[in-house]
Computed example of a mutant assay.
Amino acid sequence: MATETISASPPKVSRLNGAQHKLWLNIFMFIVIAHWAEHIAQAIQLWVLGWPPKQALGVIGVLYPPAFTSEWMHYGYALLMLIGLIALRKGFTGTSRTWWNISLGIQVWHHFEHLLLLVQAQTGWHLADRPVPTSILQLFAPRVELHLFYNAVVFVPMVIAVVRHMRPSPAERSAMLCTCALPARA
Rank of each mutant, 00 (worst) to 15 (best):
D129F: 05
L148K: 08
I106E: 05
V132S: 14
W109L: 10
L80Y: 10
L104V: 06
I106Y: 06
G105F: 04
L104I: 09
V154S: 15
F155M: 08
I83C: 11
S96C: 04
L118H: 08
T123F: 02
V62P: 00
V144L: 12
I102N: 11
W100I: 01
F112K: 02
R89A: 15
S103P: 03
A141E: 09
Q138V: 05
L104M: 08
H74V: 10
G105Q: 07
L79W: 06
Q122C: 12
W99R: 02
G124A: 00
V108I: 13
R143H: 14
F149Y: 12
F149D: 14
E71K: 07
P133Y: 00
W99I: 01
L146G: 11
Q120N: 04
I60N: 01
Y64M: 12
V62W: 01
G61F: 00
L104W: 07
G61N: 03
P131H: 02
P53D: 05
H74T: 14
L63N: 14
P65H: 00
P142K: 10
L148F: 11
L104P: 12
W99E: 14
A128L: 02
L117C: 07
S96N: 07
V153K: 03
I106A: 04
L79M: 11
S96Q: 08
V144P: 09
Y64T: 10
T98I: 11
V62E: 04
F68K: 06
A152K: 04
H74Q: 15
P131F: 02
P65V: 00
K90I: 08
R97P: 14
L148A: 09
P66C: 00
A67G: 01
V132D: 13
Y64A: 13
I102Y: 12
G76R: 01
H126F: 14
V132N: 14
A121M: 04
I83Y: 07
I136P: 12
T123S: 13
T69N: 12
V62K: 02
L79Y: 08
G61Q: 01
Y64C: 13
M73T: 14
Y150E: 15
L127K: 02
M73W: 08
F149E: 14
Q120F: 08
